[in-house]
Each structure stands twice: as structure tokens, then as C-alpha cells.
Amino acid sequence: MRKNDWILAGCILLAAAALMVFCLQRSRQGGTVVVSVNGEIYGSYSLSDDRTVQINNSNRLIIENKTAKMEWADCPDQVCVRHREISRDGESIICLPNQVVVTVQSEESPELDGIAQ
């Protein structure tokens, strides 16, 4: 392998890393928070509107600065309260005792299917 090969590989890796950072930052934008209790959808809320969501008097979710955070839960373990705030597509907070699942979804649903083999 020549020196130029290593430089090329480095440049490609750098470009990929830059793109990855760019995409992660972009995926932060927008999106909705979907709350489901016991497998049924309780409600969906936009990440861009700051609000507090009371979930069945058992959990309280706060949406602020385009992130969502579980502020309070009546369960003993408090795992969901200690979970860091979520904002990116696919991230979720789960409160197992109350069967509350909070997921971030992108506004547009993915359109990819298995055309390319």
C-alpha cells in the first residue's frame, strides 16, 4: 500500500465522519413525540412546542427546547425520570411499571423499501 492510499482512506473516513455529524445534527430538527400507554397511542406532540404532558396521573412529560424529558413518575424505580432527554429520531424513554413508552419519530415516514438487492 502506498502513502497516497492511506491519505485517500483518511480523507474518505473524514468525509464520512463529517457527514455523520451533519446528519445527526439535522435529525435533531422537528419531529414528534409519540406517547403510548399499554401499547395504545395516548397522544402525539410536536417537539417544537414547549408543553407539559400529564400521562394518566402516573407520569409527567416535559417538552422543552426541542427535547422531551420525563419529569415525574409515580413508580418506585424512577428509571424513566433519570433517563436523559430525547430528541433524535428513534430515541425513546420507557417507563416499564406504568407501561408508558415515549418515542421520538420523524415527521415524514421513511419511504424506503426493499427494491435494491
Partner: peptide, 10 residues
């Protein structure tokens, strides 16, 4: 300027 490995990489 590149060996076959670099060419294949690209």
C-alpha cells in the same frame, strides 16, 4: 499515484 488498493477503495 495510487496502488490497486487505493483505486479499489475509491
Amino acid at each position: 499515484k495510487f496502488s490497486v488498493i487505493g483505486v479499489s477503495m475509491a
